[in-house]
């Protein structure tokens, strides 16, 4: 598969379809996003589900594609994007971070194995150029989700208190998240999250992340992979994403034209009456 990707990247560059290809480059044993402009470099182009091309650069808290476009506004970039990368790009464009007009997506489908490893619901971009569509992992197939839903309120609280007490407040879950791009982050405000307090007071730190992701999480799975404490963060993010779909028929990363229900009125995006009540 990587052979085909390199070939196509080369073609796009030589035919001047794009000015640069943005993808992952492997050097020695390190994989990192790289802007390829010279076809000779393409031999180091790789695919990896453990690295995202769509990441937020710290400490400026800006997406890397945003920074490239800021630097070179006229550059036409071909981006090697999987399902999650594309969803992130769509969501970022919606939030005025990047300009999709100057981006050509070289869509790559992930394998079944990749999808399972990431617990990915849609392991392919809208237009697949390379690879075969694999089946996504649906919510009912995820063990953590099933086991959480089977718990009583008391059991859920006990479970999360225990899990979240392992948090070392490394900010890894936020830092890897392609959607955590706020200049001022509530997790850094003493009012909400006391600095120097470990583990962070239940439940505010994680509540903030989960709630802020309600209309943005594109289910890339990076937060959970990044967590050194092994906290099953995706369990809640996925459930909240399902709820937002149920309540407002909205899915982050699906359509650049569809605005988040949290910025529209009830006339534009009604709250589904039948989904209003919460099962306890």
């Amino acid at each position: 598969m990587i052979g085909k990707v390199r070939e196509l990247a080369k073609e796009w560059l030589t035919t001047k379809k794009v000015d640069a290809i943005f993808g992952l480059r492997k050097q020695n044993n390190d994989v990192a996003p790289y802007l390829f402009t010279d076809v000779k470099e393409l031999k180091d182009l790789v695919l990896s589900i453990d690295n995202r091309i769509c990441f937020t650069v710290r400490p400026s808290k800006q997406n890397i594609v945003h920074l490239i476009q800021k630097n070179s506004p006229d550059m036409k970039i071909g981006i090697i994007a999987r399902g999650c990368d594309e969803r992130a790009l769509i969501e970022l464009a919606k939030r005025f971070q990047i300009d999709l007009e100057k981006i050509e997506i070289l869509g790559v489908a992930c394998t079944n194995k990749d999808a399972e490893e990431c617990l990915c619901p849609i392991p392919y971009p809208k237009t697949i150029i390379i690879g075969e569509k694999a089946e996504g992992v649906s919510l009912d197939k995820i063990k953590n989700v099933e086991s959480l839903l089977g718990k009583t309120l008391e059991e859920k609280a006990a479970f999360w208190k225990e899990q979240l007490s392992k948090c070392i407040k490394c900010y890894g879950c936020r830092n890897v998240c392609p959607m955590c791009i706020c200049k001022e982050c509530k997790l850094e405000e003493d009012l909400w999250v006391k600095s120097g307090e470990l583990p962070p007071d239940f439940p505010m730190y994680h509540f903030i992340r989960f709630y802020h992701m309600a209309d943005r999480c594109i289910e890339c799975g990076q937060c959970e992979k990044a967590c050194p404490a092994g906290i099953p963060l995706l369990t809640i993010s996925k459930l909240v994403r399902k709820d937002v779909k149920e309540l407002f028929d909205y899915e982050a990363g699906k359509d650049v034209e569809q605005e988040s229900p949290l910025v529209t009125t009830l006339d534009e995006t009604p709250l589904k009456e039948e989904a209003k009540d919460v099962a306890v």
Partner: peptide, 27 residues
């Protein structure tokens, strides 16, 4: 402010579901 309560309605709906997942009684 026109739509402040529209936002409240939506936020609280999401909030109550999230609380439930974290083991906090949405009632």
């Amino acid at each position: 402010y026109q739509a402040g309560n529209h936002r409240a309605a939506k936020r609280i709906a999401i909030l109550r579901r999230l609380l439930n997942y974290m083991g906090i009684d949405p009632r």
